[in-house]
Nucleic acid binder design. Structure first.
Lengths: 243, 243
DNA sequence: AATGTTTTTATTGTCTGACATTTAAAAGTC
DNA sequence: GACTTTTAAATGTCAGACAATAAAAACATT
């Protein structure tokens, strides 16, 4: 079923790979129990700590869960979108912060993806999701809001827009793009004026979504992208000049 | 810097979380060396195997790399898009296969995202990427191609289209959506006729991209989505009837 | 003095064996 | 029959050891 060449490298990594392949290929079914650590150690001809390191690698990817006790052991996890979100966001955030991705590049990707959702969201959004969008817009119009809280509200607004498409695959893919932008957005100071413009655009988007007008929503998102990039460019230019 | 409450649960998971937080928050810089396993064990007041399990969890997420030898140790990894692709594809594949996501849902997400890339790709694609698209189209027109090879070529074509947008964030996000569909697509038997239609649509897309006509490419992708879903629906209906 | 070789040393990788903890099932008791 | 206790199987954790590796330090040679 799964083998392990004795050559050269990291046993725990090899074992983790062997088991992971068995899961991905479907040899191991959801909720199926893996052999006990002792049995795996015997099978792969390694010690228990080595097997354990391999299992921890898989646990880190949410591929398995472990349970103590008599009927315990390691079980193949049913990977849920909700769990996967967190990893997706963490990874995307690190990628953005570690790879010197420019604000423009991240911004372009984010709005391109959101525009992909807009027509679907215009058709399918629930009343609840529309209400969330309106609530966040109202919140964003409060002048007392800190920049951080404003950004968080911005994320919440766009999450509602994306979730309105009622497609978990899209929501999952976009979680990374939208939420990972938040730290970058947090670096920006929004003036009262720029907040006003954005709130206005958000309202237009919500209107378009409410009216089922996907094309209009896409147009607004184009404008919002342009506006966001302009604000960011101004802030960065001002910051560079003050140095 | 990082603490560890003695309450209740999985020490290695807690330690992994503490270190992960330090990395994500920026307390630990890229390529910085973590304390040795012995020092970490001492610091967290646990044994070395426990620390090792924690480190393996982080290694599984490519957050750290380890090196043996005198100046070895665990180092904070620079997360590259290329490395992240693999995880992204694995996770997306599992999500699709484990969550009973319908073919239509996955298909809808995939083409919605691709349409987001098309206008950018029409503007920026390199000659090389265009050539790749043409090459794959030619390959797809060979009747001797197995269904699996046909699907692989299909993925390669769409990867070239997406990469043409020259935005690593988009490429990363789409890697999951496009490649994770492959196992689902592999379940489909393509008739000579349906292959012909798809090759024709692929050609239209390549033409539009070559001419810098993003809107036309988006139109073609709409048609391709409709065609793909129709073919899949027919195959599934036929399979259900033959039972 | 420069260069090549050997030794030392710090670190991760792995093993052995043990004990603690948890949980469910089996055995025992009322 | 219902409740309690015991048992057993599994993961979680620890301690101590040795192997493998790779770089730096010490040494020897030209």
């Amino acid at each position: 079923m799964k083998i392990d060449p004795n050559s050269s490298a990291n046993l725990s990594a090899q074992i983790a790979k062997a088991i992971r392949d068995s899961i991905v290929s479907g040899d191991l079914i959801i909720d199926e129990r893996l052999p006990s650590e002792a049995e795996l150690a015997d099978y792969f001809q390694v010690s228990r700590p080595t097997v354990r390191e391999a299992l921890k690698r898989l646990a880190a990817q949410s591929l398995i869960r472990t349970q103590r006790g008599a009927t315990g052991g390691a079980f193949v996890n049913r990977l849920s979108f909700k769990e996967a979100y967190a990893d997706q966001v963490t990874t995307s955030t690190l990628l953005l912060s570690m790879n010197e991705v420019s604000f423009d590049t991240a911004c372009e990707a984010r709005y391109a993806l959101e525009r992909a959702c807009a027509p679907l969201s215009a058709k399918r959004r629930t009343a609840d999701q529309l209400a969330t969008m309106r609530t966040e817009i109202f919140r964003q119009s409060q002048p007392s809001l800190t920049d951080e809280a404003y950004c968080a509200s911005d994320v919440a607004f766009h999450r509602a827009l994306v979730d309105g498409a009622d497609n978990p695959v899209l929501s999952y893919q976009l979680a990374g793009a939208v939420e990972a932008m938040q730290p970058l957005m947090n670096m920006i100071t929004f003036t009262t004026r720029s907040r006003g413009i954005m709130v206005c655009l958000h309202s237009s988007i919500a209107d378009a979504i409410e009216n089922g007008d996907g094309a209009e929503a896409v147009d607004c998102l184009h404008n919002l992208e342009a506006e966001t990039r302009k604000i960011a460019a101004d802030v960065f230019a001002a910051r560079a000049a003050s140095k």
